[in-house]
Nucleic acid binder design. Sequence first.
DNA 1: ATAATTTATGAAACCGGTCCCAGGTCAACC
DNA 2: GGTTGACCTGGGACCGGTTTCATAAATTAT
Lengths: 312, 312
Amino acid sequence: MTNIHDIARLSGYSVSTVSRVINHQKYVADDKRAKVEKIMHDLDYVPNRVARDLSKGQTKTIGVVLPYANHPYFARVIDGIVTAAFEAGYKITLLPTNYDMTIERQYLDQLRSKAYDGLIFTSRSSQLETLERYRKYGQIVCCEDPGEGRPLAAAYTDRLASFVSALTWAKQHGYRKMGVVLSRNNVISASTRMTRQAYEQVFGHLDDRDLFTGAVKYEDGYRAGGYFSQLQLAEDAIFANGDDIAAGVQQYYLDHGLAPIPVIGQENLLSSRLLKFSTIDHHLEALGQAAFRLATGQSTTHELIKSEFIKR
Amino acid sequence: MTNIHDIARLSGYSVSTVSRVINHQKYVADDKRAKVEKIMHDLDYVPNRVARDLSKGQTKTIGVVLPYANHPYFARVIDGIVTAAFEAGYKITLLPTNYDMTIERQYLDQLRSKAYDGLIFTSRSSQLETLERYRKYGQIVCCEDPGEGRPLAAAYTDRLASFVSALTWAKQHGYRKMGVVLSRNNVISASTRMTRQAYEQVFGHLDDRDLFTGAVKYEDGYRAGGYFSQLQLAEDAIFANGDDIAAGVQQYYLDHGLAPIPVIGQENLLSSRLLKFSTIDHHLEALGQAAFRLATGQSTTHELIKSEFIKR
DNA sequence: ATAATTTATGAAACCGGTCCCAGGTCAACC
DNA sequence: GGTTGACCTGGGACCGGTTTCATAAATTAT
């Protein structure tokens, strides 16, 4: 494989000069530039990207940590990230964790090893403190509100506000009690925390029996439908952590000849449009774009993306 | 930032020995190994990934070329690729092209520059010959049947067979003529070629007026619905290049009070389950996994993934 | 006891670039 | 005429690892 030294030798000039030509720097005489370019072209030479990255100490690559690749939530965020990265000439590497802390730690160590210039945590299992500890090895962006004074860049949606307005709207519609579907029932998940908080603000105490957890996709929603319909707790409606999940709930009631149950979903996916139920659009592409911008910067700014409650 | 030379100096041993410890090679005395490990641990040392990549001449990274990131077809393929890559300890970089040949070429040049060990083309705009020319710089996998004797690895679904069986089934159901929705109406797109071929095999000549092109997502399907409904060509049903698109077609008819139109979609997405129309599941995760395996191998094998027609 | 292996270690070349710095030319300016 | 500064060029350290090779000690085989 031909390298910069070959080009230098063949052109009769120095490696420095060739490097200047490659990088379109000034202070190269026109004739020499032309000659070097011709030789590079004739030899079909392309500079080695890895060598450049090593020398420069940066890879122009951002790692995106996410639990699973094929999930509409993350697909939308990734879309935003990839779009912004493409425009900025950055590459995006996908880092699936399946919510395994050990694997998250591996990715943090890869950041230390200079494999990425920065990391975006679209979701996390590790403590915020852990992420902060790795902050010195590169930019780290999280997609939730880390709280005031945290030395982490963050892009997040105003979940609480949108949840409150959605639930308030539901209450005004006469729903006395709602069932809630969540993914992870733990304190790490910002979505879970905000949902509980909004629920209690609007409806009061959230009984654990009105809660179905572990829902990630349609089938889980379907199971949640089974759960809520068998329960005799008389939820008037269901607030789900995703449109596909909400669709699953509704479908269960439909399949079993039960009275249709109103649902509110999230993400404004196709399913909510087809079944015409209300949803919250968190503008995840914008979230992804903001996260990317933060990942390439130095600041620890917090950026808020407005969520939008869509009544149907 | 501490490097391998620091560890060598502090431990009193040579860089070679430290390297052996890092890579768990044999021929290091137990006591020295322990001492080196202790020092690495104390200094919180992590070997630089880029330096290793440069030295080894491989990055353990596969680039995935795709038109757009947020599309259910590619999301499923990516899911398969990422899953397989994770297990194999490889990284996946997303390379969006928006079907721009110039950009595809850039990614091919990045392969030359050793930025990736291999490239997977989930879709392409360039000629196959172009891809083949870059074959010598790394493994290249395409997701379509490149034909016999082509020096390219390939993983693809038996589109033609599944299309024929779907259309045959439709014909047996009494549909005399079907409208067809496609994304790109050109000879590069394998999906387009196979669709035309299957249609002509089952229904005979495909009139251009029965064809709606440029459909990528739900809204495009909706527009296609408008097109077909206004046309007085009496298509009995629509064969679409994706479930979400098929759903759009149906939704248009529904919204405008027209008689429901049967549709056949593709990918077995949620929309087809919710609206209960037939679809073809191309098992895209399996496709992605196969593509990844090929990308890390040396062979130019062709791997066929069976598609499945799901009648509803 | 000697030959043949296996084990252990370090020096140094190598991967392929970037970039600082030193040195030289030449026109402009005071 | 001397200083200044822009322009041009090359040497070589540097980024941080891997790997080949030479050397030597410790085992094992004959």
